[in-house]
Computed example of a mutant assay.
Amino acid sequence: MTIRVLAAGDHFVRNDLLAGALRREVAGGLAISELTLPWPVVPFGPVGEVDEASDVEDELIAALRGVEVCVTQMAPLTRRVLDACPDLRLFCVSRGGPVNANLEAATEAGVAVTFAPGRNAVATAEHTMALLLAATRRIPQTHGDLAGGVWRGDYYTYDRVGPELEGSTVGLVGYGAIGRRVARMVEGFGAEVLVYDPYVDVPGQVELDELLRRSRFVSLHARATPETTGMIGAEQLALMPRGSVLVNCARGALLDYDALCDALESGHLFGAGVDVFPEEPIPAGSRLLAAPNLVMTPHLAGASKETAMKAASIVAADVARYARGEPPAHCANPAVTLSARRPSGRA
């Protein structure tokens, strides 16, 4: 039986990667069509009732006619799309979480939604280390001075140099796949690691306030939930030792960025590195653009060739399970059963 699949890739998780992974994983019987989404050339945003998606509802609806499976990174699975696409049974999101899918509506429609946990864990952990070191050693600022023909010897004065990782304490807020990798990396530098994560059982973990008081470096790796939104604000930053460094490669919602700017401007924090923001792109006039010793990257911590290839392979493997009549390995709405696959339509 032929399964009609739409590869709705973009300029990162490309259609050739998705189609190649599907052909490797699924033993024949595929009819693959393609739709190319504009991300990241065109930023994602809210679409209908979902977040962080490409605004392509009309194009997606047209491309999904008669299609049973969609593999994508940024396509919006909204109630409108679901209502217009009765043949859809499986929607595979090649991201760490399916934030671009309306899970309630998908469950009501009998559409299983899968995702790709851990796809960017290595890339994000490595980027975390890059930001931590860049902020601590003032690499962007000193490079900018040199590129402008200025040799700043005053960067070598005691008050301007930063701390070393070796012998320091690094606090990790969140201890999932990324946090665990960062822990191994900083331990390789000779640092002690503290962990706060109420959702995992980590021997010796501490409460958040204790972690902040004891850590010279703090890195955020929690998911954005109602409980974690705004978890690091002025009060929490004030607990960190003077001259410490904060890194956020997780989600902008975790951190109060006005409070971060205050802490940098006052000198309470030596530096910070951030890859995620409360509003993306950063609006003109934002305080972040003038904050001292702040290293910023445009939400690309997870960007590596390996991330894109892993993402394609993870979702293709779940399509293969679906084709064999097996449950998917990474289903966000397991109440939907796919054991009785139908070639088209929904009961």
Rank of each mutant, 00 (worst) to 15 (best):
H221V: 04
P281R: 14
N248H: 11
A238Q: 06
L288I: 09
E207V: 08
P241V: 01
R213H: 04
R251D: 09
R214A: 14
A301D: 06
F277T: 02
L239H: 05
G243Q: 07
P278I: 03
V202H: 15
D258Q: 13
Q236R: 15
L300G: 15
D256C: 02
E279G: 09
T228D: 12
H221I: 04
V295C: 15
R242P: 02
V206R: 15
P198N: 07
L264W: 04
D209V: 03
Y199D: 14
Q236P: 10
V247T: 07
H268F: 05
E207L: 11
I232C: 06
G204K: 04
R251W: 15
A272P: 09
P298M: 08
R214P: 07
S266F: 13
A272M: 06
A234Q: 14
C249K: 04
L255Y: 01
M296H: 12
N248M: 15
G243M: 13
D201F: 07
G230E: 07
L254R: 05
P298H: 12
D262Q: 12
A253E: 14
G252S: 06
D209N: 15
G271Y: 10
L220S: 03
V274C: 15
P198Q: 06
A291Q: 02
L239N: 01
E279Q: 15
D256Y: 03
L264G: 04
P203W: 07
S244N: 09
L246N: 00
L255W: 03
V247P: 05
H299C: 10
L208I: 13
T228Y: 10
V276W: 10
A250D: 03
V276S: 13
G230N: 06
S215R: 04
F270D: 01
F217R: 02
H299Y: 13
A238E: 13
D275I: 08
L239G: 03
D256I: 00
P298D: 10
L260E: 08
R213P: 07
Y196K: 00
D258A: 10
P198I: 08
G243S: 04
V202C: 14
R242N: 01
A272N: 09
C249E: 06
T229Y: 05
Y257T: 07
L208Y: 10
A259M: 05
E210G: 01
L294K: 01
P278D: 04
A284D: 15
L260Y: 02
L220I: 08
A259N: 06
F277K: 03
P298C: 10
F217T: 00
D197Q: 12
A272L: 06
L237T: 07
L294G: 02
A284I: 03
Q236V: 00
T297R: 07
A263M: 04
G204R: 05
E265F: 00
L294A: 04
V274M: 00
R213W: 03
S266A: 12
D197I: 00
P241E: 04
E279A: 14
D262M: 08
G204T: 04
S286V: 02
R214S: 08
R223L: 12
F217S: 00
A238P: 09
T297I: 07
T225A: 10
S219R: 02
F277V: 05
L300D: 13
A290F: 12
S244T: 02
F277M: 10
S286F: 11
D258L: 02
A238H: 04
L237Y: 09
A259R: 01
H268Y: 08
Y196D: 10
P203F: 02
